[in-house]
Amino acid sequence: MATANNPISHHTSHTIGNGASSSNNGSHGDSQNSNVNGHNQSHVLEAPRTSSAVDDLDLIIKGAYYVPSLCSSGESVLCDTSNSYTGTIASDTTPMCSSINLSTFNIIDSTLREGEQFATAYFNTAQKLEIAKALNDFGVDYIELTLPAASEQSRAACEAICKLGLKAKILCHIRCNMDDAKIAVQTGVDRINMRIGTSSRLMAHSHGKDMAFMAAKADEVIKYVKSHNVEIRFSGEDSFHSDFGEILKLYSLVDRLGADRVGIADTGGGATPMEVSEKVETLRRTVSCDIETHFHDDTGCAVANAFLALEAGATHIDTTVLGIGERNGITSLGGLMACLIPTDRTLILNKYKLEKLRFLEHLNAGIVGVEVPFNNSVMPLQQFD
């Protein structure tokens, strides 16, 4: 519920009050010793997940933390991470495979969360139900809903969509605090996407908290959500403008605490494909859990960034129908499909019903009062035969 110290606004992707996504197909707890995208997880996380976070938090406060070595020996070392990530990867690392493993790829469609921040978008409950059904018919893996604590309408819509019995997993956004987590769990969602601002700008001017505070709150919320058999993602808002060394420390910790997925977000929309490739590859070597990415399209790079993120080891991509969202929007569902078809045409056409994309795009365009763009991604129907 909104209070003077914990306000709610329509723009729920912004960090507010104490504010801060996830599937590992149920295998996260046993993944430490498995080989994920070519790196041996036995060297990544040495402390048991059941251990207290107190010692981990102490290391964060002191500026040191166990992170996987990026050298060829593969040994974990206690690193002094007081210096920021430089954006480069050690020259003696083993290059990752450039091909995309689409068998681990999932779409998290955020039309009903990020899309609500589009200038002309406001979805009533009936429209949300219609869009959710259409997204499910298309075959998206996840449908992301707005913060249930934002309003009674948001909470009611979330509960109604959860009761539809859709094949797509239903998840909702929350801030990094227990009040949001409790309300979200009560709605019946399958997954929860937790986030908090991690850039220096948001730490200074939004929630006013440091990394140690974030780690402690994340620990509390993760334990609560997991105790209710709900999967959870932890994401740093504006993480592409954050100190990436600090992001690696924090994400390594929340991975050990049991987060099913960590998220990296280009909230400001200025990330370049090369930067995305380097940072996601480095993150992939640091955590064993799934990785979600969220790209805004301010410079027209959102689809390219999503594609490069998948090549670098990301497992989940946030999209919206027609790319609607805050400012210039985010990765377009249709644009990403058009980009992925040449990569593995058979898999994409078997997994997603692309013949339903046109209806989905016109449905959303009509609801938000825009035309389908003249330069919308081209996927002729004969491709689906």
Rank of each mutant, 00 (worst) to 15 (best):
I192E: 02
N375Y: 09
E371G: 09
D56R: 04
Y122R: 14
F213I: 06
I324C: 00
S332R: 01
C71F: 10
L253C: 09
D180R: 07
N37G: 10
G335S: 04
L171I: 06
I89C: 09
S235P: 07
S199W: 00
Q383R: 07
N350M: 04
T319Q: 05
S242Q: 10
V221S: 00
A64V: 11
T293G: 05
N305D: 09
A215N: 00
S72N: 13
A314R: 06
L357K: 05
H205I: 12
T3G: 02
P48Y: 12
N350V: 05
S82E: 13
F374A: 15
I161Y: 03
F105M: 05
L340D: 07
G300M: 04
S239G: 15
S23L: 04
A309N: 02
I264L: 13
L202G: 06
A309Y: 05
R195K: 10
A271D: 03
Y224H: 11
T286F: 09
K133N: 12
L57H: 01
L253M: 15
C97K: 13
K62D: 14
N6W: 07
Q32I: 10
E130G: 06
C172H: 05
A181V: 05
D190C: 06
Q127H: 14
S73F: 11
V230R: 06
I131H: 01
T286V: 05
A309E: 06
Y66C: 08
V225H: 00
L70D: 11
Q383Y: 11
V221C: 06
R285G: 02
G26E: 11
H294M: 08
I89W: 03
N376T: 12
K356V: 07
S332G: 10
Y122K: 14
L102Q: 00
G208Q: 14
E311I: 00
N6I: 01
